[in-house]
């Protein structure tokens, strides 16, 4: 495994010392920023429910082509900064409008640890990625953390410069333990796509997850 116990302890300690992340909320598209629905210091929640069916807290109203749209929080936390000067103005796409100070959840702590402990397949280019159709079918059937991939099997399809290039598994057969991207997501070069582990490493990874679940409140 890439990390030993001492390193894992250190990582958990640093996460306990600073369990926050600052998320910048950007405009998803152009339009008039009609009004902010939050102020600095407000607590907001991200989408919740088994299927994320309950939407996040409303943050601001963006109107485009005379269609007002409420932009909602994608993450829970406290509103740290609101750019009031943009209210009533026409904004471009991807313009930062507010910041949310988010406290890491147990699930996110586990994801952080897995990024360090699993064998990571990283994005070779900044591109859009799709899970290989065969692998996606197997994961859907057998569940995440159960599918073993053999050398030569397609893991991911990279959609890059209008071409689709498969990324193939190399090395020993491994378990696909965690997916770090969603279908068609734009992933920066070097960012993780998949976390793999050897069959013999699986108990160790599962033990690690159990430890975080025990030590970290939900």
């Amino acid at each position: 495994m890439p990390l030993d116990n001492r390193e894992i302890n250190q990582l958990l300690q640093s996460l306990r010392a600073n369990p926050y992340r600052l998320y910048v909320v950007e405009t998803p598209h152009t339009g008039y920023l009609r009004e902010f629905l939050v102020k600095e210091g407000d607590e907001v929640t991200g989408p919740s429910g088994k299927w994320m069916e309950r939407p996040g807290s409303p943050l601001f109203v963006l109107e485009r082509e005379r269609n007002p749209k409420t932009i909602r929080a994608k993450i829970s936390g406290e509103v740290a900064k609101v750019r009031r000067e943009l209210e009533g103005k026409f904004v471009e796409a991807y313009q930062p409008v507010l910041e949310i100070r988010h406290t890491l959840t147990q699930k996110e702590i586990i994801a952080e640890l897995l990024r360090k402990t699993l064998h990571i397949v990283t994005a070779p280019e900044r591109a859009r990625y799709f899970l290989a159709p065969d692998l996606a079918k197997r994961i859907e059937k057998e569940g995440e953390g159960r599918v073993v991939v053999k050398p030569g099997e397609e893991l991911v399809i990279m959609s890059f410069m209008k071409r689709e290039t498969p990324i193939v598994h190399q090395g020993e057969p491994m378990v696909v333990f965690r997916l770090f991207f969603s279908r068609g997501q734009m992933v920066e070069q070097g960012e993780p796509l998949l976390g793999l582990c050897l069959e013999k490493e699986r108990p160790y990874v599962e033990k690690l997850i159990a430890r975080v679940k025990e030590e970290w409140p939900v």
Partner: peptide
Amino acid sequence: FCISSYRDANDILAVAD
């Protein structure tokens, strides 16, 4: 103007307006 995508008709028309 920065838009979300060259394929986003709503963004293109919003900028045009």
